[in-house]
Write a protein that binds this DNA or RNA. Structure first.
Lengths: 285, 285, 285
DNA sequence: ATAGGTTTTGTCAAGCTTTTGTACAT
DNA sequence: ATGTACAAAAGCTTGACAAAACCTAT
């Protein structure tokens, strides 16, 4: 699929196909809410850009969450992302973060994160700094290049920052999502990052954390009328053993699984998120 | 029971339910002894406050001890506590925090903590709000009165707040203290609280968190030239098994143990902190 | 800015679904108790915000505890939580703080600071939010663009927060620093910020506040065996007159001067901090 | 404790308007 | 492609009603 970067190249039929919205409706949205402002061909045909595809998709997302068309359109327009701000080199920051954490230097690690937060969005900070660092840390740990003390020290600090960003994520109007790690799972950082990213997209988060029995996940989902249940798994074996119960749970709630160990569930017909948390949160919305 | 702050919010039926006195009788007590002086709604309905509930309860107690109604009323009125919890007394806040966390209501829980922080020091907030709540939660959990979901939800939020207060605790010139939970131990909230309290007294904190092998504790202590190593233990059995190694560690660093399961170490000649984390942190400095 | 929860986006049906309260009842609550004050679409449809969802939920909670509708509504309105506000860049936060303070909106101002504190370190919060704002306020005041009322309102709130952060700064084992404003000087906010930053680096603070005679400063420094004396000056003239005495003081203690009016002292061979308080505190440690 | 009247509050209905996806004619 | 039309769905206002909860006075 050719990358439709800057200017108008899509005709209305193609936009319709890609966005899943009928051509008539697209024209109506344009007329009534000014959702799109396509260029015109010499003969008067509408020509849409890649940004337009995104805008229509946002509109559909908002419709799906229950907003009425006029409001959904206004929001979709307002959310236009201006342009990714040039950060001061994610790679440098990542290296500095790694170095600070490796030398038990909390203040410096905090400063690096502060710097990243000042320069970009939370999303980008997560996707470009925290999550890659965690990945790298995991790899190094597997190769025996780091000690548990370092790993613990680093997660303590990152957990604090992530939970700080998470403050208030239970507030508001969005649909609720229950987040938990499967029984015996302790790694919650990716899950928190996922929650923060979901939150930024309007969800309301109910966070249960590591090592949560499925019974109580269900209880929480019921009590909070959650529209989504996200379970994180690090180790495939544990997931395999739980597949029947997970399937039952999926019958009663919209269930998604994530984390490095979630793969086995896919074969069982369950929804598995494979990418990085931020991207998946974006896709879910 | 819920808040019901200053002014009249209860109608007579609800007061009746809460005090266990029939509505007719309440009106009679008002007329005859002036026990209550409720506000009135625009339409003339009586509106009672939380203090009124207490006054009626006192009245009942006095009746039960055999006083005549008139005397009981007089007494109940005279006993009015001048400052009956100015809406943010520790007890009230604690109840409200418990209520918020029990109903998966993150924003309210955060608001309660904010309120406490605005009114007192971090030390007091920890000692009077967070730690007692954790204690209570533990008790309730043991009695099967709460579910794991609630316990997880609550610790997630409290951990976030504590780690927020902890931010920057590695900064400075003070002596360093290494904090960790013993292997297999997951409960780190008390340990973090201890760290925060230590920090407020000038220590520099290196926090390793839950489930940390002794090897790596020692490694971190060496690398950071720590003057103190604090290990937290929830279950006595685990401590017993580790006593020899702990003793060796104590030979090389100033070592203290804490948490509900640390007792067995005392017999082995190790230093054990028995009180609440804040008090112990104060004593250490 | 993805989640624009501030504005009205929900129609009554959706609010009904999310809050579990029928549309008729929502309208009744609005009419009878003014619980909600939705915006209106061009055609007159009610448009609700995320805060409205929360308010309805609070109302339901109070109803569930037995309050009658009128009282439940009054309470739900009174309990308004300051602001949800999704994660933001420093610049945005600063603008929002300025806006809140300019409109005498204390809760919102507090919420902005809360948010900043949740997401970053105290250092960064000071350096990126509070101090730049103070600078800006000073400039505006000089240009006559703000009134004394605003200036007082703003400093009152900021002083409160800073002193909140300062709580306990006299505690601990670090070296002591005496902080004071020169005689006749009233502006202490920068000085307090400096103290907070010093404290974060392990110093013990002895704070004497505005308009302190030099005699008193010296006495405090002697009694507390301070390793550092920091004096703040806003107006150069006052400093000039005091140079001889300051020089004498510098002979007995390590003395530094700060604030916009400290410059003249430099010529006299005294140490003057010119940068922002946080950076200077870092440099001193 | 009862009687007789009032207030409060959730629900419903009638009649009309707005919104919005789709269809059709030019 | 444009403009108009249309009908279903969702909202709005006004008014009313009945059950529950309260009031005063006896």
């Amino acid at each position: 699929m050719p990358d439709v970067a800057g200017e108008g190249v899509l005709r209305i039929g193609e936009l319709s196909k890609r966005s899943g919205v009928s051509a008539e409706l697209l024209r109506a949205w344009e007329r009534r809410y000014g959702l799109l402002e396509p260029q015109r061909s010499a003969g008067g045909l509408r020509l849409y850009s890649g940004a337009d595809v995104d805008r229509v998709r946002r509109m559909r997302r908002h419709l799906a969450t229950g907003l009425a068309a006029a409001e959904a359109a206004a929001l979709a327009r307002r959310e236009e992302t201006p342009a990714p701000a040039p950060a001061n080199s994610p790679a440098t920051l990542r290296a500095e973060l790694a170095d600070a954490l490796a030398s038990f230097d909390e203040p410096r690690a905090q400063a690096v994160i502060d710097q990243a937060l000042a320069a970009t969005t939370v999303d980008t900070m997560l996707a470009e700094l925290i999550l890659p660092y965690l990945h790298e840390l995991g790899d190094r740990w597997q190769r025996g290049e780091t000690t548990i003390a370092h790993e613990h020290f680093a997660s303590g600090i990152l957990r604090g920052r992530l939970l700080g960003l998470a403050r208030g994520w239970g507030l508001g109007m969005g649909p609720a999502a229950v987040l938990a790690c499967l029984p015996a799972e302790q790694h919650d950082l990716g899950l928190i990052a996922f929650g923060v990213a979901l939150r930024a997209r309007g969800w309301r988060i109910v966070y249960l954390g590591p090592d949560t029995p499925l019974d109580t996940v269900e209880e929480a989902a019921r009590e909070t009328r959650a529209e989504l249940v996200m379970l994180s798994a690090a180790l495939p074996e544990r997931v395999r053993a739980l597949v029947p119960r997970l399937r039952a749970l999926a019958g009663r709630h919209r269930l998604v699984l994530g984390g490095p160990g979630a793969e086995p569930a896919r074969a069982a017909g369950l929804t598995v998120l494979a990418g990085d948390p931020v991207a998946e949160a974006a896709a879910l919305s």
